[in-house]
């Protein structure tokens, strides 16, 4: 389950790839939508940890345009519901994530991202 909440936390970790290595770009993805329990406290608590632009861009790549380009200052229920859906209910099941800098491809199979590197890529 590569949910966008996880995608928002993953960066390329190839040796020497230290700039422009986040966010990873989705490629050839298949997505599934699955309901998750709504928890406003969790969302409010998690909000400061989110890289907003990365989240909005990732959601748009996957065809969801419900989030505003700028992070709103007023947190209302409608916003939290949209955030809940984007962060927790969109699952990337198959495909890959590609580093915008070094182009390393991290495959996603059965919803699990494979972030392992070859021996020579390890820092």
């Amino acid at each position: 389950m590569v949910r966008l909440i996880t995608h928002n936390l993953l960066a390329c970790h190839v040796k020497g790839c230290n700039t422009n290595n986040f966010p990873l770009q989705f490629q050839d993805v298949q997505i599934e939508l699955r309901e998750a329990d709504f928890n406003a406290d969790f969302l409010r608590g998690f909000l400061p940890k989110i890289e907003w632009n990365a989240l909005v861009d990732a959601a748009r790549q996957l065809g969801d345009t419900s989030l505003p380009q700028e992070q709103p200052t007023m947190i209302d229920d409608d916003f939290l519901k949209a955030l809940h859906h984007v962060l927790l209910e969109i699952h990337v099941e198959e495909g890959a994530m590609v580093c915008p800098n070094c182009k390393h491809v991290y495959p996603i199979a059965s919803g699990i991202p494979n972030m392992l590197l070859a021996e020579h890529e390890i820092g």
Binding site: M1, V2, R3, I5, T6, N8, L9, L10, A11, C12, H13, N21, F22, A36, K49, E51, L88, Y106, I112, P113, N114, M115, L116
Partner: peptide, 21 residues
């Protein structure tokens, strides 16, 4: 329980974003 699994050594691909988190 929703567990988000990642095939990775330690926390390596998460280190940048999870600093102090």
């Amino acid at each position: 329980i929703r567990l988000d699994a990642i095939i990775a050594p330690f926390a390596h691909p998460l280190l940048d974003r999870l600093k102090g988190s």
